[in-house]
Structure formats: structure tokens, C-alpha cells
Design a protein around this nucleic acid. Sequence first.
DNA 1: GGCGTCTAGGTAACCGGTTACACGGGGCGG
DNA 2: CCGCCCCGTGTAACCGGTTACCTAGACGCC
Lengths: 336, 336
Amino acid sequence: MRKAGATIRDVAARAELSVASVSRVFNGHANVHPDARERVLAAAEALGYVPHAGARSLSMARTHAVGVVIPDLHGEFFSEIVRGMDREAGRRGYHLLLSNMHADAEQAAQAMRSMRGRVDGMIVMAPGLDPAAVEAVLPVGIPAVLIASPNAGTRAAVAIDNRAGVEAVVAHLVATGRRALVHVAGPEGNIDATERREAFVEALAQHLPGRPPRIIPGSFFQEAGEGAARDLLASGERFDAIVAANDMVALGALHVLREAGVDVPGRVAVAGFDDVPLARFLSLTTVQVGIDEIGGRAMTRLFDDIEGKASDMMIDMITPRLIVRATTGAAGEPHA
Amino acid sequence: MRKAGATIRDVAARAELSVASVSRVFNGHANVHPDARERVLAAAEALGYVPHAGARSLSMARTHAVGVVIPDLHGEFFSEIVRGMDREAGRRGYHLLLSNMHADAEQAAQAMRSMRGRVDGMIVMAPGLDPAAVEAVLPVGIPAVLIASPNAGTRAAVAIDNRAGVEAVVAHLVATGRRALVHVAGPEGNIDATERREAFVEALAQHLPGRPPRIIPGSFFQEAGEGAARDLLASGERFDAIVAANDMVALGALHVLREAGVDVPGRVAVAGFDDVPLARFLSLTTVQVGIDEIGGRAMTRLFDDIEGKASDMMIDMITPRLIVRATTGAAGEPHA
DNA sequence: GGCGTCTAGGTAACCGGTTACACGGGGCGG
DNA sequence: CCGCCCCGTGTAACCGGTTACCTAGACGCC
């Protein structure tokens, strides 16, 4: 019963060769006699030798891992973005070192620091933190790509063109006869939420000049949509379309409206943002951003950095696409 | 502009102390004079020193990371299980090293091997591989916990009590008047799918003796449910309940039934398995297994192993709970 | 035969930390 | 005054690999 892994020296001893030869065999180097290679392989097999990745990393200054720091996202967004990263990373033989950044910034900083020496690069999604804070905490000299983070332009980043997305939604709603649009906003201080809110105001000014924008503060969770819809119904306010900060919010609103017997899309249209898989399933009109693509693109960009192919592109802006589904069909009478 | 991280020796030099003292400061050891501590901290600050986790791991034989190997799961299941693990790991200051095990077993083996020296333990979810294969590929002497994997009983594991879950569903359906139950099975060779299928047969024999079980082969994806429902409708076969292999399949079936104008639950009841967040949203009757709990429990169990608290419990069986929602209400006439 | 070249393989330094052990000096009891 | 102990600190070995550099022998050529 062997305790724990055999080392390269054990293998060398058994094969009656030096560690250098063993190392060469395992790294597929040229100058090794076939007989020697044979002996090494046999010895390794007998000992159940598996190279120690940690030691290898240390001496090669290459870990073949990338750190991923993301906030505690709700279900589908999380899995999609991680899937996108993993697909791209796997393609190049890299692992993902995951660290959810729950709660406070101090803990996040800790997590990020502790990645030095463990990863070759990092992908950071910190929609709440300001760029200086992130910059300060990133270990020196480590390539990093930001996702959906406020950005001073000094770091490579992947971002969603929120403006274009919201503009498309509003244009679509107005074109299909809606006039009283309500925006349920995302969390305060979140960059995407902020951009979407601002874009809503601008789009409204452009498409329905003179109408004051109606905005209800919320979050990125279902509950925000439910609450907003309930409040709207209770207030008796007149509205015929809800532009939600994201899909979960839209679905929450949709749920409440339907329960209350409001005809969607007849009386009220509902649109989301993100196009989580669930949205298609529930026929929600939304803005497709290709969540997995965000992850994939960030990873690709990071590899360019890691491999020194300095790319001139600092911000990779993802252009979203409006997907019209059943929740924004033809309008009937607006909801009283 | 510093190139890359300063080392402990740089800090030692600047503080005019030895590396040992610096190390002691950073590890909070006792015997360091306050003045010395001060100097070390100042030097580290000035140099932007961050300890190199990789090097530390090597010398301490402790990585503070656990490897997670899971198949390419569909959305919510993936994120929930990872969330559960991450929560528990984060609590103890561990990171997750993720490796999706796509496609072939050889690649999976490669991924698992390459984790030696990178992690202190592993959580492996391989519902398709047989126990011997997994055992063979696990690096020697590394603690590991299996999830939803066939298991010779030689490894710690977390498993779902599929039998109890299916039994509860069938009992509930029969009690509410259903008589012609159809099971849409999961993927061939998957342990959970197999157990659920077998349990369906047993439960049927017990609750409705004499009725031959009706089983449609499928997968764990929505499409399987859609296909099965379509076939059932097309065949004109008489059925009044669908017991799906999991929630996604149930939702697929539900979708097709509703589109076809079949009253659910009036004519046909639909039940799933897993209770993904989405299920609650769509009022699907299902069996709640607490997906995140599976991840959390596996992690907890792994830590026991890592810390040498040998637990006698080899298999941690998760008892599921039937959640009755709208898709299995009172029965009307069965679907013709 | 002498010498340059090429090949296979060995030696030891190095990656960046941790830590066992050694050491010097101050305080204290006898 | 001496021996002992404790405290703060330094030295160097070690974790498990990689690899620059060196060596020994085989071979070919003049």
C-alpha cells in the first residue's frame, strides 16, 4: 500500500536513469534512446507515477489554469458564462480556478490575491466594484480580462452593448403600438443595470419625445419583477409594456401579470434582457447577448494576452440581438 | 514598472531580515519582534509583494483547492451543484478547480490525472463511467468523493435516493386517481436514470399490480420530453400521467401537451425529478433533491477525508421530498 | 591517430516558498 | 560568576519538477 504519489526520482531510480531522462520522456523531448524511454515508461507504470502539476508549474512558471472571479450569479447566467469559458479553456488544455465573489469586497480581494502563483491569468467580473479598486487588488503583472465591469480603458474587457439592446427593445415596442413603457431597473451601482436604465431614458426620448420615462427601481432577481408588477397593478397606473432589466425580472413580472389575469401581450407587453435558455422556453421577447459567448470571448482575449499576442483591441463589445417572441405580440387596449 | 511579482527574498532584502522572518510574519507565527514585523510589512507593501500560492503549496503539500470533475450538465443543475460546492469550499478558504468532462473517457482521465499536485481532493461526478474505471484513473492517495456515480462501495459517495423519490411520485399519482402512467426514461447507462426507471417498474407493480409498465426511452434533455409527448399523442395511446426522468424532460412534455391543447393536470398529470429552480416557476410537481445540497454535502464529506477525520459513512444518501404543484392536480378524464 | 561532431544521458541549480535546527544574547536562579 | 532557558533570528535543506551545461563515447574524416 503506497502512501502517496511516487516522485520523478523514484521513477528514475527504478529505471536506473537520471531524473533528467525521466523528465524528457514525459515531456516528449527528442534525445532519449528508445530503450531508455521504454524503461522509464515501465517504471512509471509500475509505480503508478503521475507528474506533480504543482511542481511543474513552479519550475515552468506556467500553471495552465485561469482564475475566474464572478459574483454570486443566479442560475442560468452563471452556468452559461462558465460553460463558455470552460469550452474555450478546455480547448487549450487549461483548467478553471473558480472563486465566487460573495458579499464583501475585502473577501473578493483576498480571493484574487490568493490566485497569484496558481493561475496564468484571470477573468474578473465585478459589475459593482470601481475600476481602481479592481486594479489595486489584481496581482502585479498578471494578465486579466474584465467582464461587465466599469473600466477605465486600461484593461482588456468584454462588454455588452446595453445601449443598442435597449434601443432595439424600445423601438420594437413603440413600433408595435405601445406607448406607456415602464422600465424595471436592475441593482443600483451595477454597470449593466445603469447602462440599461440610461439607455431606456434616451431611447424613450427619441422614440416618444415628450413622455417622461417611468422607472421602477429593482434588482436582477425575479422578485423585483414580481414586486414591480404588483405595485403597478395596485396603483391603477396605466401602462402597456414592461422593459425589464433582465430576463429573470421580466419573468417575475410576467408571472404576476398572468396570475392577475392581465392579457400578455394583449394588454401588456413584457421584454427581458440576456436571453437565458429559460426565456426561449417561456416565449419571452428579449435581447440575446450570447452569455456563453461572453465567457468564450473573454477567455480568447485572455489567451492572447497570456501568449503575448498583444491585441490592440481593449474593449470587445458584444452586440446583442433582439429576439421577438410571444410576450410582445400585437397590442390590444393598454392596461388601465 | 515592475515586471512580475516580487519574491519573498526581495522582501527579506529590503527589510534587512531573512526569508524565515518574512515567512513567519506572513503566516502569523509567534516569534517575531514587533519591529521586525513592521519592517517586513512595510517592505512588502512597498514592493507589492503577494505570496506565491503555487510555491507555498509545493512546500506545504497543501493546495487549498479541490478538483471538481463533472460532465457537461445542462444549465441549472450545473450551476446549482457548483454553487453548493463553492459555498462550502469558500467557507473553508478553498478554491474550486473545475474541469468539465466532455465527451470521451480518455479526456476525462487526462483531466483527472492532471490534477495531481494541484488539489487536495476531488469530487467526481461520472454517472456513466463504471467504478473500476474511475478508481483506475484517480491519482493514488488523493481523497475523493463520488457523486451520482456507480460505486463499488470503496469510495465515499453522495447519492440520491432515487427509489424513494419515484415511489413517492407514483404513490401520489395513483392516490389522485391516475391509472395509466408513462415513464420517460433518462439516458441509457446513467446510474440515476437507471435507478429511476427500475423504481418506476417496482412502484407500479406495487401500487397498480397487474399493469405492465409503460416506458419510453429518452435522455435528460427537454427534447426527450417533447418527443415522448408527441409520440404519445400521435399514437392515440391512452395515458393520464407522465413520470419524467427529470425536470427538463417533464417541462418538454408539458410544453408539447399544452401546445396540443391537452389539459394539464385535468387530463394528464406531469411530474419531474430534481426540482430545478425553474420547476417552481412553472408549477411543476417534482421531487426535490436539493441540488446545491448534493454539492455541499459532497464537499463536507471530502473535507472530513482531507482532514483525516475518517468518517465511517461511505454513502451519504440524500432523501428527496415530493413537492406537489399544479401539474398534478385533480384528475378529469384520462387523455384518450 | 588526432580531432571535431553528434548523441544520450547525468549533475546540479533553480522556481518561491516553509521550517528544522543552530546560534547569540539577555535575564535569572544558585 | 556560571549555567540554563527563552526569545528572536538566520542558514540551509526540502517540496517535485525542468533544464542549462557538461561529459563520455561513437563515429567520420583527414
